[in-house]
Nucleic acid binder design. Structure first.
Lengths: 354, 354
DNA sequence: TTGAAAGCGATACCAG
DNA sequence: CTGGTATCGCTTTCAA
């Protein structure tokens, strides 16, 4: 049955490298960790041995020997919206578990819509205390440069939820937001039963994720459902109160509204408006992110579908990628690809036990 | 920022336990691993120290010290269907990666629809060589008993894809199939634009997953879409050729077919029939499992939606749970909950690079 | 039934 | 620049 222990030929270790390269363990370690103080000729020899043996570092042993904790920081916007709260819960939970693996995960919140706050936070970091950072923020030149500086200092950086492609962040952890918008449009087009207008609620013009969703949504609506007209979007700045306040006028202006696409945060405002105005009948509502309130809305029929990304997956993936980057380990592309989840009432996962 | 190294108070180790309990390292290890040859009074002392200190075993170090590989076996049905192939690919891939962590994952295929074959395989296993098994098979009394015997031998067992609740498998790794059927019905009801009949294609009456899907589908169709009638299902035994062969008669018998729910394997047969007969227009088709052929069908419009479970997730989850069970480690419930994925054309993940 | 001591693979410190 | 060696937390002989 091919299940014996022997096979797979003993995996090469640092000792093997040292032997083959004819140097000491300490030197191998220096090369492996790009530490200074090794002649380039020696580095060559060691690297040759590494390649020859097909060496892959044993992360378990490395972590064991390294007395230092592996320190990660999540930089999140200081808003109270549920999606961000979900992320925080995950950061806390994962962090608690990883303590046992010598990984310390912390979190800091910065004022939203304030690029300078993120810049300051990043600039304050020092590679002695922080090994990696996950940043959820807007894409501005100042932030891009701050990320570059952080990486120069030797800190690994991943962009979370909203990509920051022009910075040279090591990875992006999040969904393809254009595709998410397209998905919402496809469902909208198929769910709506009569012609009319569709309203899009967005968040901020600074948020790349919101812009991309909008773009994808408009594209598919135009291509596949020309009989439905998308009306100028409401910019809710992720603020439920603001959203709720703006809606009456919009609904009054477009009596033939047949659908609403809530592409950002602020769902509670939308839900509350729909309930109070009794407008949920014959209106297809598709929103983003599975949270306590959106789940309830889906269950009760106020929402028809939710497009989501798994907060647990986002956080775990960010942590794995940060570790892989720092320790120069390989990672699994397909595992790190965050899925665009679609929820209807029947495939809602069981409620959190807690 | 709360990111210092110190905090969390040094995690207790086996040495601490030994000191507190006043015994040697070796004895602590014996208790920790339930090895024989320790007086119960001593066991008491050690356990008390463990509880007192809140000790959690360091899996990394344990694996490092243990020279033995951790051996897992996947028992899969010997069919060529794409979903099973996907699982095999994942088993191979994960296995390759885990070699570096001293985990050896192998696979064995048994004739489908043949409970005795699985029983034999399980009974042949010996706890010296196999630590855990993931079983994808039908639920019969013989299999249930074989699983009980395996567990008695000290082998961890998880049921994969289809649950085997009456055996005392350690875990079930898969989706809630009743909910999956309900989800399919919800989409079917919303996608279909005119009244008529809906055909359900199932696999085998022995397969618990198929039965559960069918049950969920019928329930929601009855509750929410009484205007659509579900017609007696075609039993395709997961065989594309058989499915293809049976369809012409069914379509002839029900000219008012507006939807098809393919709840088992055999999609290629359905796709090929639909293409050749030109019947894909105005017919809503919902199938299970994202595979090369179902993906193509979704892209080209032959399928309208796919309900799926991530093969990579299934395999990783099975492995994690088997390890957690064997090493008595805690695990993350929410991470192990396999989601019911819904795919439409727009949220299809990027094609595998390979 | 128990203990002492030698590793597992990698890192870090102290010499040279 | 380079090498020797103690050490991380745990498992595993080998003796007692």
């Amino acid at each position: 049955m091919g299940t014996d222990n022997v096979s797979a030929g003993p995996k090469p270790t640092v000792n093997d490298i040292a032997r083959v390269a004819g140097v000491s363990l300490a030197t191998v370690d220096r090369v492996l960790n790009a530490r200074p103080g090794v002649r380039s000729a020696t580095i060559e020899k060691v690297n040759k041995a590494i390649a020859e043996l097909g060496y892959v570092r044993d992360a378990a042993a490395a972590n064991l020997a390294r007395r230092r904790f592996f320190n990660l920081l999540f930089v999140l916007p200081d808003t109270t919206n549920e999606f961000v709260s979900n992320l925080e819960v995950q950061v806390a939970q994962q962090g608690a578990k990883l303590l046992h693996e010598r990984v310390l995960v912390s979190e800091t919140k910065v004022p939203p819509f304030d690029p300078q706050a993120i810049v300051k936070t990043l600039d304050r970091l020092d590679a002695e205390h922080i090994d990696g950072v996950a940043v959820f923020g807007p894409e501005t030149p100042a932030i891009r440069d701050a990320i570059k500086r952080a990486r120069q200092k030797g800190i690994a950086v991943v962009a979370l939820v909203a990509d920051l492609p022009s910075s040279d962040r090591d990875h992006f952890v999040g969904i393809d937001n254009v595709a998410a918008g397209r998905t919402a449009a496809q469902l909208m087009g198929r769910f709506v039963r009569k012609n009319g207008r569709v309203l899009v609620i967005t968040g901020s013009r600074l948020a790349r994720d919101h812009l991309e969703r909008r773009k994808g949504f408009d594209a598919v609506m135009g291509e596949s459902f020309p009989e439905l007209k998308v009306v100028a979007s409401v910019e809710g700045r992720d603020d439920p109160d603001l959203v709720k306040q703006m809606l009456p006028d919009v609904f009054a202006a477009y009596p033939d509204l047949v659908g609403v696409y809530s592409s950002a945060a602020g769902n509670p405002g939308l839900i509350s408006y729909l309930k109070e105005s009794g407008r949920q009948e014959n209106l297809v509502v598709i929103a983003h992110e599975l949270t306590a309130s959106s789940r309830a809305a889906l269950k009760s029929g106020v929402f028809d579908a939710i497009i989501s990304q798994d907060a647990g997956h986002l956080v775990r993936s960010a942590i794995r990628l940060l570790r892989a980057t720092t320790h120069r380990l390989p990672f699994d592309d397909t595992q790190e690809r965050i899925r665009i989840d679609i929820y209807v009432r029947e495939n809602l996962p069981a409620e959190r036990p807690v």
